[in-house]
Design a binder for these strands. Structure first.
Lengths: 109, 109
DNA sequence: TAATTTTATAACCGAATAGTTATATATTAA
DNA sequence: TTAATATATAACTATTCGGTTATAAAATTA
């Protein structure tokens, strides 16, 4: 079973759970109340999120408080970084081209 | 069938394909040579990548030249952005705490 | 102690995923 | 024209995914 951050955030419900918990940590029942799926389904999503370090759980009596571990998203961040750099570079090149074209048209006036 | 960028980059082979093509565009056969899976398997991955705008294909004779569309990764970037912000904020708070603690220990000397 | 609440787990189901092999269809080269 | 090359597609398979219901276990409340 592949179990990594990329696979974890592929599911829209899990992305929502992350967003929900980033704002305020809460227990599993509260998380469940925010969705139209059963508690076991949420438990399963949680298991995946926990297994790849996206969420941590603290036992408090019979409840389990769930919290997002934001730094675990770093793996995605790092994969994305070089592409963002290339993308920005392209924009810079486009900018320079536009500047060149503008100064050229000025000279022609 | 869900088909979005998050699901597309969930597969490690597809992430590799994106990385490969970001460096230099190439045809499907060349992409295939970089992996230990069959040509139809690569074709299927390509279909998914094309369908969610991560890759564009240009027909050139019997070959198909494949190119990454970097801006399509923006969806991931945008989802990640607020979390990165929160994450940085936490570091800032930690920094401020450390500064406070340092100045306090200085006063105590 | 009995009832309630919170969570986990088992067993199941249909659909999706990631691969395979075989084959068809263009296009190019001999 | 025939052979070779590049790609697409069909049919199949095993596994995973995302959900369900039923039930168990642990902790809390009445």
């Amino acid at each position: 079973m592949r179990r990594d951050v990329f696979q974890a955030i592929a599911d829209p419900t899990r992305r929502e759970i992350i967003g929900l918990l980033a704002n305020n940590p809460m227990n599993l029942t509260s998380v469940t109340e925010n969705f139209n799926i059963s508690q076991p389904a949420i438990s399963k999503h949680m298991k995946i999120l926990i297994e790849c370090g996206l969420i941590s759980v603290e036992k408090q009596g019979r409840e389990r408080y769930c919290e997002v571990k934001l730094d675990s998203l770093n793996e995605v961040e790092e994969w994305l970084a070089p592409f963002r750099k290339m993308w920005e570079q392209r924009f810079d090149q486009l900018d320079q081209l536009l500047i060149k074209m503008q100064s050229k048209s000025k000279n022609e006036q």
